[in-house]
């Protein structure tokens, strides 16, 4: 981990975040500092309610920290208005969710084109980009299918293609395999791994599944408001222990 945040794609500097409930502030992140270098593939684990999704929201500028700074790809998100943040997200980020969140009225191809609607690309160019994205996730033959005609694993791969369409520097994935069976989960993880290795996309992936976490380069454990650098080797051993 580098201390120079200029090299980091994501830098959280003394970030605290809490939510008000019944006039009481519930702290979620407390004075956290975190650097994620370009090209990293980080798995974030932690108990339910520990603030994993909150972390992703902060990195995406969907939510603002109570105190501290969030700097992504050299941009201090606190300096941007809501409108500029929208535009910034469309140019820099890709999202993958547990629930896929595809538009049911749009075909796979059209779902992938969605983020490209915000670019000046022509119809034909949008189509070409979307086709390329679908090829990467291996679903070229399903371009005209609607979400209801796809399996869960295929839906998630379309969602990944959508996240890739705008060439993001950072991919944020919140439990991307949480709804999938083992085989589909493997396919999705293979895909994320190759995106990271071949295309150098930085990935932050929240997961509850140790098998998924093992595919990442690094594991962060979130507990009681701060991160603990966890050891994948230790995780592996404990997993093997469980298997035995």
């Amino acid at each position: 981990m580098s201390d120079n945040h200029a090299e980091s794609i994501v830098a959280l500097l003394n970030v605290s975040k809490g939510f008000m409930r019944d006039k009481l502030e519930i702290p979620v992140l407390t004075n956290t500092t975190l650097h994620i270098p370009k090209g990293d593939f980080v798995a974030v684990m932690g108990p339910s309610g520990s603030g994993k999704s909150t972390l992703l929201n902060l990195c995406a500028g969907l939510d603002r920290p109570t105190t501290g700074k969030v700097i992504v790809n050299g941009q201090d998100l606190g300096e941007l208005s809501e409108a500029r943040l929208s535009k910034w997200r469309s140019e820099n980020l890709g999202f993958i969710f547990q629930m896929y969140n595809l538009m049911p009225v749009l075909s796979a191809q059209e779902n992938v084109e969605l983020p490209l609607m915000l670019t000046p690309l022509s119809r034909a160019e949008r189509r070409k980009h979307a086709e390329a994205s679908l090829r990467i996730v291996g679903l070229s033959d399903r371009a005209d299918h609607y979400p209801r005609q796809l399996s869960g694993g295929q839906e998630q791969r379309v969602a990944i293609a959508r996240a890739l369409a705008n060439d993001p520097v950072l991919l944020l994935a919140d439990e991307p395999t949480g709804n999938l069976d083992a085989t589909s989960a493997q396919e999705v993880l293979d895909l994320l791994e190759s995106l990271n290795e071949q295309f150098g996309v930085t990935i932050i992936m929240v997961t509850h599944d140790p098998k998924a976490a093992r595919r990442a380069k690094r594991l962060l454990h979130l507990e009681k408001g701060s991160f603990v650098q966890a050891d994948i080797e230790a995780l592996e051993t404990s997993l093997r222990g469980v298997a035995r």
């Binding site: 809501e82 409108a83 535009k87």
Partner: peptide, 14 residues
């Protein structure tokens, strides 16, 4: 609501 949230997350302006 979810779809709209997704649109906004992707970067669609208000």
């Amino acid at each position: 609501t979810r779809e709209i949230a997704l649109f906004k997350a992707i970067g669609f302006p208000q």
